[in-house]
């Protein structure tokens, strides 16, 4: 066992990378749930985003185009959820589960010819001088742009929900859709926008795995990250910064336990492997002990009766 082999700078830098897919997906789902919709299809939208982004990056040679494609792919798949739940008024839980299963299968089909290919890499942000700072430089300034996008998105969603009229209307729709309708707000339209935003974010998160974190394509490579993101939204009490905290915590424990495994710590691998889930959930359960704050209309079907 050699703990000195663990480099703290690399550790922190890589935990940020490990956390980003979860963060992206969670922020998207947070907006969806704030609008009163429970979309359990995050995993499916992520994996479709992952393969869309991967395929377009390989074909075009541009990771930027790839990420754009992944967002579009995720949003397109979420349109299926829109069709089921907002138009056909189907049950949201069942539709979300169906979306995940469909996404997993459909992505395998799409990805058949992409197995084993290495995608072109996205350049890292490299700011002369700043990136060269000792310790802080590699941690804060040496990452790919999408990682910063994830943090920026968290800040943007937080500000949007707290300070803007759009955010207020979105929360109102999630809180009491009948009242929002009576006041003349377009409940269904607002929810469709939120669902598509959630789909796009999940797609980006998926592509972050296939293009940056891993980077290659294998079937089912999101491996439950979408579910973690879903749980994170609940345990974060629908607060964006807590979602970020939870994602980084999960990413952090994941990276630490991998390092511990590599260092040969005398704890069975299975325990190490389950530790990120356990620790994240325990910490967030304690954080969310105050008012749960779930949007009151969450998961309820809206039907305008007139």
């Amino acid at each position: 066992m050699d703990l000195s082999a663990i480099n703290p700078v690399l550790l922190i830098a890589s935990l940020m990378v490990a956390a980003t897919p979860i963060l992206l997906a969670a922020i998207g789902e947070l907006v969806v749930e704030k609008a009163g919709v429970l979309n359990l299809g995050v995993e499916g939208m992520m994996i479709v985003g992952a393969i869309s982004g991967f395929a377009i990056t390989v074909e075009s040679g541009s990771p930027w185009l790839g990420f754009l494609a992944s967002a579009i792919g995720g949003a397109l798949l979420s349109l299926l959820f829109v069709l089921l739940t907002q138009v056909a008024l189907a049950n949201q839980v069942a539709s979300g589960l169906a979306l995940t299963l469909f996404g997993l299968g459909f992505s395998s089909l799409m990805g058949q010819s992409y197995v084993g290919i290495k995608p072109p890499q996205m350049g890292k942000l490299d700011i002369p001088f700043l990136t060269d700072l000792p310790f802080i430089g590699p941690i804060l300034f040496g990452h790919d742009p999408i990682l910063y996008l994830g943090i920026a998105l968290t800040a943007a969603v937080w500000a949007l929900l707290k300070y803007t009229r759009v955010g207020l209307v979105l929360r109102a729709v999630g809180e009491n859709h009948d009242a929002a309708h009576a006041l003349g707000y377009k409940v269904v339209r607002i929810r469709i926008m939120a669902i598509m935003f959630g789909g796009a974010c999940a797609g980006l998160g998926g592509a972050y795995i296939s293009l940056i974190r891993v980077p290659q394509w294998t079937e089912g490579m999101t491996a439950g990250v979408g579910w973690i993101a879903l749980a994170l939204v609940v345990f974060a009490s629908w607060k964006p910064w807590r979602a970020l905290l939870g994602a980084y915590l999960f990413g952090g424990v994941t990276v630490v336990q991998l390092n511990l495994q590599a260092a040969g710590v005398a704890i069975p691998v299975e325990y190490l492997a389950m530790s990120p889930y356990l620790i994240t959930i325990i910490v967030l359960v304690f954080l969310s002990r105050d008012k749960s704050g779930a949007p009151a209309s969450l998961g309820r079907i809206f039907h305008a009766t007139h």
Partner: peptide, 29 residues
Amino acid sequence: RAARADGIAMVFQHFSLFDALNVAENIAL
């Protein structure tokens, strides 16, 4: 919206309020 713009306001039988929001936010909506 159009009715409100023309000066019609309505207090509902079952209140159309949002429990989790504060008074000012409810009114702003």
